[in-house]
């Protein structure tokens, strides 16, 4: 299995706010292959989100290297990383981060503004239908339920056919049914050859993962499988 995401000895520290440096991540290594669903689990403050942001090239590590599809993110400029993300990475966040002035359809199509996606309208409609949002396509996001919002966010993350899907507590605000639908969406993406890195503190959310990495105080608490 070829590695889509490679994290090698990642370390990251940040200011705690009272002048002390906190080691958010310390020597984390992880590899996620194509078709693999990896979950990172740990309590709040364990460094999960920091790890996810580093994996997506939104945050630069203090030490270590990150590569996606064999491309070293550390050697890219911020603009190059943005361009690279637009074609290769999808994000799903706990807070959905939908754009309030756009409809469901236009939210899903947002990645097409950043990157050239030839079949964006067709693909957006298919994704919307797939996630059960067909009747809501032209609704403003403010009128959606939380489950619908997260499904919209997931559809948006998949529009650019990413190689890597990064999900940060995607079920944190959802009821069981909607959580299940979102997890199923992530799982399907992996089954279709994508790589998924899910960070969560919820034990139930890791059921569908192929592997689980445990984090505690920025360190690997459990050995990653593979």
């Amino acid at each position: 299995m070829s590695a889509v995401l490679e994290l090698n000895q990642i370390a990251k520290a940040h200011d705690s706010g009272n002048g002390r440096r906190v080691q958010a991540l310390d020597g984390i290594s992880l590899s996620v292959g194509a078709g693999e669903f990896v979950a990172v689990r740990g309590p709040s403050g364990s460094g999960k989100t920091t790890l996810l942001l580093i994996a997506g090239g939104l945050l630069a590590p203090d030490e270590g290297a990150v590569s996606i599809g064999g491309r070293d993110l550390g050697s890219m400029t911020a603009e190059s990383r943005a361009r690279f993300r637009a074609g290769n990475v999808g994000f799903v966040f706990q807070q959905f981060h939908l754009i309030p002035y756009l409809s469901v359809l236009h939210n899903v199509m947002t990645p097409a503004v950043a990157a050239n996606i030839g079949d964006a309208p067709d693909r957006a409609e298919k994704l919307i239908a797939r996630f059960g949002l067909g009747s809501r396509a032209h609704h403003p996001t403010a009128r959606l339920s939380t489950g619908e919002r997260q499904r919209t966010a997931l559809a948006r993350a998949l529009l650019n056919r990413p190689r890597l899907l990064l999900a940060d507590e995607p079920t944190g605000n959802l009821d069981a049914d909607n959580a299940e639908r979102v997890m199923a969406g992530l799982s399907d993406f992996a089954k279709n050859g994508g790589a998924v890195l899910l960070v969560t503190h919820d034990n139930n959310a890791t059921d569908r993962a192929d592997r689980v990495l445990l984090l505690k105080d920025g360190k690997q608490a459990g050995a990653p499988a593979g």
Binding site: L58, R85, H97, R156
Partner: peptide
């Protein structure tokens, strides 16, 4: 701010 954050994550460049 949140919109800008997610747009940057999605891949919007600074110029965009």
């Amino acid at each position: 701010r949140a919109e800008i954050g997610i747009l940057r994550a999605i891949g919007f460049r600074s110029s965009q």
